[in-house]
């Protein structure tokens, strides 16, 4: 009898449609978000494969071809460098390779600083939200105070004082971005903690640890994922802002901010030096924002 029950079970069980599956289905239907994912993947692949894609090294200086236009440049220019598809910069380095290496740095800063903010934000926010009461009020008051600081100025001071340390850059930017993350995680934790299904689990004898891992975390992941996607472009922007001011990445390493800064200096004579890094950066930010918006709509369809 039991044996037949076991053999039957696989046959009659209907596969459920989980919220994740639903969200994925809606995301796949969102053309802007899907295009964003594809383009981002392409840019990331280009950045990773950069050394293989070009015969030039990112720091290979060539004083014969200073600030030369690519061969296909439609406007008459002082000099052209046919082998360099994006042209060359003011010391004759290949711009294509430099834009891709810039992508490596910018994307790395974006991802690492976002992870830093995620780590701090989730720990802080979840603690505040889970403990609640006075501790929560105090912890959130601290966030409120920090929130009202013009934080970028502190990052600038830090970068100046500690000599443009690369690691510090990640930490400093992450330390700015964690505030919003903490707010979101805390809000989510609080609202989920008050949901009836948590009480139901408690009434069913489920222990506090299992409640956090089985009920709270899976329900917080969605909104956090959305926010992470929207934080990455913010971080990339902050990094390039600092680099533009000369406070971020140092030569010969480069990032989009550095390239744009160089390009802006030369834009009258060599507009490609501004155009290509600016284009790559704008497209990347654009894609991240559309993917983030798409994710949000997919997770919470009532928003549209």
């Amino acid at each position: 009898m039991i044996a037949t029950g076991q053999t039957l079970k696989a046959v009659d069980e209907i596969k459920g449609r989980s919220l994740w599956v639903d969200a994925r289905r809606r995301l796949v239907k969102n053309r802007a978000a899907m295009a964003g994912i594809v383009i981002l993947a392409a840019i990331a692949a280009l950045a990773l494969l950069a050394p293989l894609l070009s015969p030039y090294a990112y720091d290979e200086v060539n004083y014969d071809i200073i600030a030369c236009a690519p061969g296909w440049w439609p406007v008459e220019t002082a000099c052209t460098a046919p082998g360099h598809i994006f042209g060359t910069d003011s010391v004759g380095r290949d711009l294509f390779v430099r834009v891709l290496f810039g992508a490596r740095v910018s994307l790395a800063v974006g991802l690492v600083a976002t992870l830093v903010s995620l780590l701090i934000g989730v720990l802080y926010g979840a603690t505040a939200g889970y403990l609640g009461g006075r501790v929560d009020a105090l912890m959130m008051r601290v966030v409120d105070i920090l929130y009202s600081l013009p934080f970028v100025f502190f990052v600038i001071i830090l970068m100046v004082l500690f000599d443009r340390n690369f690691i510090l850059l990640f930490v400093a930017i992450g330390a700015v971005e964690w505030l919003t993350m903490a707010r979101i995680v805390r809000g989510q934790t609080l609202s989920i903690k008050q949901k009836e299904f948590i009480e139901a689990a408690r009434a069913g004898g489920v222990g506090p640890f299992a409640i956090i891992t089985r009920h709270v975390i899976p329900n917080v992941v969605g909104p956090v994922m959305v926010y992470v996607t929207l934080t990455v472009p913010g971080v990339i922007l902050t990094e390039s802002f600092l680099s533009f001011l000369g406070l971020g990445i140092q030569e010969p390493l480069t990032s989009w901010g550095v390239l744009i800064s160089d390009g802006a200096d030369q834009m009258e004579t060599a507009p490609w030096m501004l155009l290509f890094p600016a284009l790559f950066m704008a497209v990347t930010l654009f894609c991240f924002n559309y993917v983030g918006d798409g994710l949000r709509d997919a997770m919470d369809p009532k928003d549209r």
Partner: peptide
């Protein structure tokens, strides 16, 4: 609006300078 958010100040500033100034 999405363009406005994604294109940073330090790109629009030189671009506008180029177009309207130079």
């Amino acid at each position: 609006a999405m363009l406005g958010i994604t294109i940073p100040t330090f790109v629009t500033a030189p671009l506008l300078t180029l177009v309207f100034g130079i």
